[in-house]
Write a protein that binds this DNA or RNA. Structure first.
Lengths: 361, 361
DNA sequence: ACGAGAAATGTTTACGTAATCATCGGTAGC
DNA sequence: GCTACCGATGATTACGTAAACATTTCTCGT
């Protein structure tokens, strides 16, 4: 048993209904306790029970107490299906993600769930097995059969572009990790600012230029980070080395790292995420390129493991909690009927650790 | 715009209702398309629409076609709230987790979401900010206001033990990462088998004994892994070194690693998860203890990063996908009225990489 | 003391679906 | 040709809640 009990009705004694041992349906199957049951026991109308249940109406203290007692005795719980039907809203937010493998998605999801919960909203997870357009289309098609009032899309932009999606008219949408389509509000980490900070940090340390291991081409975030990297170098009149591209995985970072290890002029690398940075560090380690003595490495994300890499990784910390908060905020505004547009960017902070240092020591 | 359109009603021309421009509620507010609207357009009763919508009743082909056409023209979508109210079930599974920071929780959640989706069930995420008993109690209290038919608890056992929780009587429960309380079905990775495999692997390589960095005391999984570690050593008549304890984080692994680095007799370590193993590897690296030449290290989980550690980590792979699958399976059985009891254990596999080798080279 | 007005509570109804029962038309058996 | 039955479809109703409207009770100013 271990301390878990199943709630029992009528624990306080006293029969709930006059005609037997609790509420029963047509076929004698025990029914859940409804407002009518509470109303009967409390000697009030079911509407008064409703008012007490929703807290907001004017009910005199003595009546409220009677109703609350009756609720407690019967173990009354509002039926959310009936509520949703009557109110025309579910108090639920759907989150569509392409898998939970990436730290960013997960942490954003977690923050959304937290904020939503605090606002009295539930979060329904709508996973996509594979990032195919068919799957995306399918998710959108089923959207209005799903019990959600709004949807947060955590998705790379190319899947939104190309699929000709049909959105149910009453479902509100907020997009993360994508650009402003003009139709939906967008919340995202300030990718440019983060990438600029990383590159400038390396230049400030005295490196003549900075190499870049980018994320996949389809990724909006990867594109922005690469753009900002190049922009800073050009602003500062530095040579722009050829760009290497990975797919966010440590393995792809390792591949890129092997190639960088063979570049004699490579003294500083900005890697587009921490997982790839891990691979880069391993490649450098295997090739005898010391970090940070020979090469400095900066990552992006600040995953839980980054502080324990060899060496501990200097990286751009994303504030996923804030992203999630803003998503929920935008969703709630939309549900209130406000028109929310534009892009809200969440700033990053540079976490300096041991993987960066001055060149040529 | 980027290819996203909002669905329009009546695209095929032809007015939906005789009296105006679409269905409207009492206050003229546009209403969602209901069965009645479809029925009117198709010239049948709403009951027939229901039958078509649910697919299972005997409807003649010509009638079905008429109804389907009308549905398409009006853009009809079933109202899940009304459905849930009528059927008395939500077709939704709640997942209660203590945060999504641990890889295991996330991957189990992901697998649950996938399996549930395939079975036509939605997944509602019920996050707990902090693993306090108040929070757990609160989640359980709100459970039957939430639109779920069943709940999967991914939670360390001590929180279940000590909190005197009250479960709504109609909500089915399945537990992960916990022991058999006798009340609920349990699904879990076979912690013992996994740990035994890890320890035996090290002994088979020729190590005289194996040290262990365990997870926190409150964790059921950590306890089982430590027990199995000790059991194997005793079975084999080996010396049982003192147990070190971490809290699953890389930092705690680093602390343990520093201490192990000072133990001259330590040639093999079984670390209870990969994140702590990362910390151990860093500590060994800093202290000049070569892995695997001087010390062998085995982890547990096989996180995405493990293959890119320095050196790549030999670790026990958990089959989270299978765990999620079995959770959903158990939940669905319970919902069908079957009585599901006992523990279902999912086997692990050892992934051999470069962090283990024969001793004393 | 009386009536206006407000506050508290009750009554009716609709939300959209699907189970149940009723009805209608056709068909096979005699 | 009549009845018994079956398959297809329609009509009614309940699920539990909350909005809208109705009624009752109380308070206060004159």
């Amino acid at each position: 048993m271990r301390g878990i009990r199943v709630a029992e009705k009528n624990t306080a004694g006293g029969s709930a209904t006059a005609d037997g041992d609790g509420p029963r349906g047509a076929r004698g199957r025990p029914r859940r306790v409804s407002m009518a049951d509470v109303a009967q026991l409390a000697g009030v109308s079911s509407q008064t029970v409703s008012r007490v249940s929703n807290g907001d109406a004017a009910v005199v203290e003595s009546t409220r107490a009677k109703v609350l007692d009756a609720m407690k005795e019967l173990g009354y719980r509002p039926n959310s299906a009936a509520r949703a039907l009557k109110r025309g809203e579910f108090r639920a937010i759907g989150v569509i993600t392409m898998g939970l493998s990436s730290t960013g998605n997960v942490r954003t999801l977690e923050a959304i769930a937290g904020s939503a919960s605090r606002a009295g909203y539930a979060v329904t997870l709508i996973p996509l097995d594979a990032p195919t357009q068919d799957n995306v289309r399918g998710a959108f098609t089923r959207l209005d059969e799903l019990a959600v009032d709004a949807v947060v899309l955590i998705m790379e932009v190319h899947l939104l572009d190309t699929a000709s999606l049909t959105l149910p008219p009453h479902v509100k949408v907020v997009v993360v990790d994508s650009d402003a389509t003009g139709r939906f509000p967008v919340v995202d980490t300030d990718q440019r600012q983060g990438a600029r900070t990383a590159v400038r940090h390396l230049l400030d340390l005295g490196h003549t230029t900075v190499w870049h291991v980018a994320g996949p081409e389809e990724s909006f975030a990867a594109g922005r980070r690469a753009e900002a990297w190049e922009a800073v170098l050009r602003e500062e009149g530095r040579k722009v080395p050829p760009l290497l591209r990975g797919d966010w995985t440590p393995e792809s970072g390792y591949e890129a790292g092997l190639r960088l290890a063979d570049e004699p002029g490579c003294g500083a690398v900005f890697v587009a995420n921490d997982q790839m940075a891990l691979g880069v560090l391993r490649a450098f380690h295997e090739r005898g390129r010391r970090v940070p003595e020979d090469v400095s490495v900066v990552g992006f994300d600040d995953i839980a493991e980054a502080a324990s890499f060899i060496p501990p990784l200097t990286t751009v910390r994303q504030d996923f909690a804030r992203v999630g908060e803003l998503c929920v905020d935008a969703v709630l505004r939309e549900l209130r009927g406000e028109t929310v547009t534009g892009v809200r960017l969440v700033p990053t902070t540079l976490t300096e650790r041991a993987s960066t240092g001055a060149p040529g020591r």
